[in-house]
Amino acid sequence: MSDTDINVEDIDAAGADAAVAVADATTDHAEDHGHDDHGHEEHYTSLGLSNMKLAMWLFLGSECLLFGALISAYLLSKTRFIIELVAGNPNVLAGIRDGENESLVQEMIAEASVEPIFDIPFTSLSSFILLMSSLTMVLAHKSVSEGNYKNLRIWLATTMLLGATFMAGQVYEFTTFYREGLTYNGTVFGTAFYTLTGFHGAHVTGGLIMLGSLLFLSTRNKMQKDRAETVELVGLYWHFVDIVWVLIFTIVYLIP
């Protein structure tokens, strides 16, 4: 038993050492900001980071591989689709490989009238809207960490509104394309296009649900300063979805 006691003392001393080391490492950042009216107590973590935030970043890292795979599946399917389209014409086929004959290919695609002529101005607008929602999201987080709950609600609601507008735009786009003859199972291109953009849409919808929950909690005064991190986490997710759209917008819409 006495051994154990000695041990505990050892631990005590070393523990203090460790704590001092941590403190040393942080002196330049660690301003004490009295944000915890609830007696909020943080705990020792090895990296000094929040578990939740670390987890969210890990999850987003994983999502990179997910969207990467979807985007490459789209690109490959599109390439195959074009090759299939012009397969009857060996010259063009060779041309595609060399990167020439693009106008001819474009013509053929237009003739086949299966790839929708993207409505670039329309999509640009909805991209812009999604970008804007990132701004409002980040302002929402800013508000909550400053304790301005009214602004929090305003910005959350705006973000939701913008996100919903984006989704409405996507629904509109899908229906238009569908009427123009681009069906889900008609061509490889159709399948790939709807899957990729639809998957992104599903992510936006998931984000909307989260934002809705935040807003609801905030109206009940349950989303306060000490929970600012929750808003930040939802924000991270939301910005990530936005980033993915940045990629999709360029790769799918702008690059023919």
């Binding site: 941590v22 301003e31 900001h33 943080e42 705990h43 020792y44 973590t45 000094g48 980071l49 935030k53």
Partner: peptide, 22 residues
Amino acid sequence: ATTASDHGHDVAHDDHEHHPTA
């Protein structure tokens, strides 16, 4: 209240002061 967790308090919350302004 332990030493380590007291410091953890400072450490674990990455400071909003560091976040950009509006």
